[in-house]
Amino acid sequence: MKNILVIARKELGTYLGSPMAYIVTAVFLALTGTFFTTYLAGVGYGDTSIRGFVNAARFLVLLFAAVLTMRLVSEEKKVGTWELLLTVPVRDVEIVVGKFLGALAMLTGMLMLTLYYPIMLMSFGDPDIGPMATSYLGLFLLGGACLAAGVFASSVTANQIVSAVVAGGILFGLWFLGVLGGLAPGAIGDVLALFSLSTYFADFERGIVDTRGVVYYVTFALLFLYLSVRSIEVGRWR
């Protein structure tokens, strides 16, 4: 546990110490802010919801998770610090979880900065708090799942670009599995939708916390964290 926190704190420090994190955050805020505003303008300010923001953020989270995590392992492999990390008395799983938590803290920080959208709505109108709260919960869970996949992608390569592309491929592929499921007939379509990242998000947007959704995203994250640990282990045998 101690080791996890040491690594998580270091990773968060690395994010905050580099210009990349600020650029990523700025772009994230600019894009989500734009969608937040255009949605409200589109309905003639007749609605007080963050739907515009959430609709954009659920995609952006996929993209930004891939970008945030791409350096986590790949960079260490490239510059050689990986050899240090794997020879200190720290378990592989502690490395993986530590790095994941560092990235999760970063993403959570980015989401917290967007809280001024609902705060703004609350000060000028009377929005329904429920859907807003569950939307944030949904984004947090989705974000965690995406970061875990990103950690895995980073653990299989020493190339950050490859890592980002692999993560993006996994995440967008699994997101649009739901759309594909809608096209496929009957049972096949249902099964595809069952595994899609997008299927369970709709409930969170509507203000519903479905246990299946929570279980899905948490399981998704745990699965990819487990695969990351295995990938590190395999690396020792190569």
Binding site: T81, E83, T87, V88
Partner: peptide, 18 residues
Amino acid sequence: QGRRHIGYLPEVVPLYTD
């Protein structure tokens, strides 16, 4: 347990340059 007793300097010095 073994790693606790070892200090290791790899051929490529493992530095976080930031």
